[in-house]
């Protein structure tokens, strides 16, 4: 049986981790390489780096960061943000990332998923979906551009389409729950998980270690991602895992 994965997410801007992370034992709190090593020691099963650089130089710096992280980490890591072409994917994967995550670019040009999957294999291609409940649609709607733009896509239909085109994993963020710290969006996670044949990473809403139990047991997520609760030390990866173990959830 596969262990449920706990994945910290780091926002990286111009080569530095942002969000004002407060770690005591690190020399340089904003260094993505040191933070990656820190989470690795804590038992993180994987890491996600989100490149939120605004400039071209920032994106180039990201390639250096990926290379340095690859030299330090013995766990898989995914890089997302600003990947718009096969050339972007090549740069990031050759620098040592294990997977790339596509979001807006995949909605604008779904062929990109297939191009990536054909070249690198489906296991390398994660499609990230930002989902928000829509009363009129009576379901969730896909948003792009960092959650600013609504699209025509209903989430389940888009998730299926992405998988059909070669996505090896879905990173599903609930915009409704994100930042609320009231727990993951269980109905959304469950609905997408039942609709697709690839692993689903639930994201958005984690407020405490307790929130990780229902997302695995009820919503059947394969992995759960969180940022602020780990960054602000409200809990730790190790604490979440020992809690889950007590609850009978298989973790590493």
């Amino acid at each position: 049986m596969l262990a449920k994965r706990i994945i910290p997410c780091l926002d990286v801007k111009e080569g530095r981790v942002v969000k004002g992370i407060q770690f005591v034992n690190l020399r340089d709190a904003g260094d993505p390489v040191e933070l990656a090593a820190f989470y690795d020691q804590q038992g993180a099963d994987e890491l996600v780096f989100l490149d939120i650089s605004a400039s071209h130089e920032g994106r180039e710096t990201m390639v250096d960061v990926v290379e340095q992280v690859a030299g330090q980490l013995a766990i898989p890591f995914t890089v997302g943000g600003g990947i718009n072409s096969l050339a972007d994917m090549k740069r990031i994967l050759r620098a040592g990332a294990d997977k790339v995550s596509l979001n807006t670019a995949a909605v604008l040009r779904p062929e990109l998923i297939t191009e990536g999957a054909d070249f690198f294999g489906s296991q390398c291609i994660v499609v990230a979906i930002d989902a928000k409940y829509d009363e009129a649609l009576r379901s969730w709607r896909v948003f792009t551009h960092g959650g600013r733009k609504p699209t025509e896509w209903e989430v389940i239909a888009w998730a299926k389409e992405a998988v059909k085109r070669g996505a090896g994993e879905i990173l599903l963020t609930s915009m409704d729950q994100d930042g609320e710290k009231k727990g993951f969006d269980l109905p959304l996670t469950k609905a997408v998980g039942e609709a697709v044949t690839v692993p689903v990473i639930a994201s958005g809403g984690a407020g405490s270690k307790e929130d990780f139990d229902p997302v695995f047991k009820e919503a059947k997520a394969d992995a759960a991602l969180a940022a602020s609760i780990f960054h602000y030390k409200e809990t730790s990866v190790a604490e979440v895992k020992s809690f889950l173990k007590q609850k009978g959830v298989e973790v590493r």
Binding site: L2, R5, Q123, V198, P199
Partner: peptide, 12 residues
């Protein structure tokens, strides 16, 4: 019962 393929993740 359906299960996911690829076998992706940590197994003991």
């Amino acid at each position: 019962e359906r299960y996911k393929v690829p076998h992706m993740g940590w197994n003991r």
